[in-house]
Every structure is written in structure tokens, then in C-alpha cells.
């Protein structure tokens, strides 16, 4: 499902505290990969409204709905970055979620930290994972579905190791799908 038309602007907003430079890195990654006009917004509060108390995780679908109602301009896309753990009802967790061909996406840095896996902090790894997840989710907003190429940024990663394996680039097939 392809978007009706490209947005005049993609607005990036952090929900609660996020790692230092996360928005800036997402901004430059999205801009250089898709050539979209991006804008950084001032931070919003953490998405407590979406918290599923039993699971201790926030429902990413509710966050997408909230983002769309909070920033309703139809010609602008909205991209959220949060540090809370995200999930949808059928999955154990998600790194990110986006409306396919829609105007909202959100990523979580919760499971991108090395510390989450009991290893020493690594800012460079964290930022490169944020870039990959940002491009992956914006790819969905641009109408791309998942790709079978392990190196393509649109490869669905079920675990962090798969995120680390995939590159930050779109494979030639996805790139040609993007502009066809």
C-alpha cells in the first residue's frame, strides 16, 4: 500500500527521555535515505496512556493513534522516538511500528541498548541501531513491506542480532520499489 502523496514535512518527536543525539541521528538518516524534509519537534511526555499494566509494555498501536491525533496535519508525517518498551498484542515486543503507507511511526530504544542485554554500554552501536530502525519504519510509511534480503534494512528482525546484521541501506529491489 503506497502513500497517497509524499509529505511536505516529516516531523520527529521524542516521547519522554531518549538517548542523547537519538533524534538528530534519526533525522539525518531519514533525510539522507529518503530525501524527506524533516523537522525536530520539542519533546512530548512519555506515552503512559498506552501502558499495558499486565505486560509492563506500551501498546505501539495506541501510540500511533495518539501521534496521529496530536499532530493532525494531513500533509505532515509524524515519527516518534521513545525509551519505553513497546509491544503489540500478538508479539512479545517490537523495536518499532509504522502504518503501512500511512503517516505515523514510532520506534523504541528500550531494547536497542547494550545494557538491556547485560553488556557494557555502547553509544555507537545504539545510534547505528536507531538509524536502522528509523529507516526501516519510514520505509513502511513509504509503502515498502518486509524484504527477504538479510542485508536490506527492510529485513524483519525478530531479535537484535538480526538488526545488527542488516545494513543501513535499502537493497536494489526495495529501492526500485520505492520509486516505481
Amino acid at each position: 500500500m503506497r502513500p497517497q502523496e509524499l509529505p511536505s514535512k516529516l516531523r520527529i518527536v521524542s516521547l519522554g527521555n531518549t538517548p542523547q543525539n537519538a533524534e538528530e541521528r534519526a533525522y539525518s538518516a531519514i533525510q539522507s535515505c529518503f530525501g524527506l524534509n524533516c523537522e525536530l519537534l520539542s519533546p512530548e511526555p512519555p506515552p503512559e496512556f498506552a501502558l499495558d499494566v499486565l505486560r509492563g509494555q506500551c501498546n505501539s498501536l495506541e501510540i500511533l493513534d495518539w501521534l496521529e491525533s496530536r499532530f493532525p496535519q494531513p500533509d505532515q508525517w509524524i515519527f516518534g522516538i521513545t525509551d519505553v518498551d513497546l509491544a503489540i498484542p500478538v508479539l512479545t515486543f517490537v523495536f518499532g511500528e509504522a502504518r503501512l503507507g500511512g503517516r505515523s511511526a514510532v520506534i523504541s530504544t528500550f531494547r536497542l541498548h547494550e545494557e538491556f542485554y547485560g553488556r557494557p554500554a555502547d553509544t555507537l552501536m545504539l545510534l547505528s541501531r536507531i538509524e536502522k530502525e528509523a529507516i526501516h519504519e519510514v520505509g513502511h510509511m513509504m509503502g515498502l513491506t518486509h524484504c527477504l534480503d538479510r542485508n536490506c534494512v527492510m529485513y524483519p528482525s525478530n531479535s537484535l542480532s538480526q538488526t545488527d546484521v542488516k545494513s543501513i541501506k535499502l537493497c536494489p529491489d526495495c529501492r526500485s520499489n520505492l520509486y516505481s
Binding site: E68, I88, G96, E97, E137
Partner: peptide
């Protein structure tokens, strides 16, 4: 599964 208003795709996680 994610169709509240329009479809969404996600990255990460195992199926419950």
C-alpha cells in the same frame, strides 16, 4: 492483526 484504522507493520519480537 494491527488494523485499528489502517494496517501497521512492525520490526522485532517473537509471536506470542
Amino acid at each position: 492483526l494491527t488494523d485499528s484504522k489502517s494496517a501497521a507493520l512492525s520490526d522485532g519480537g517473537e509471536l506470542l
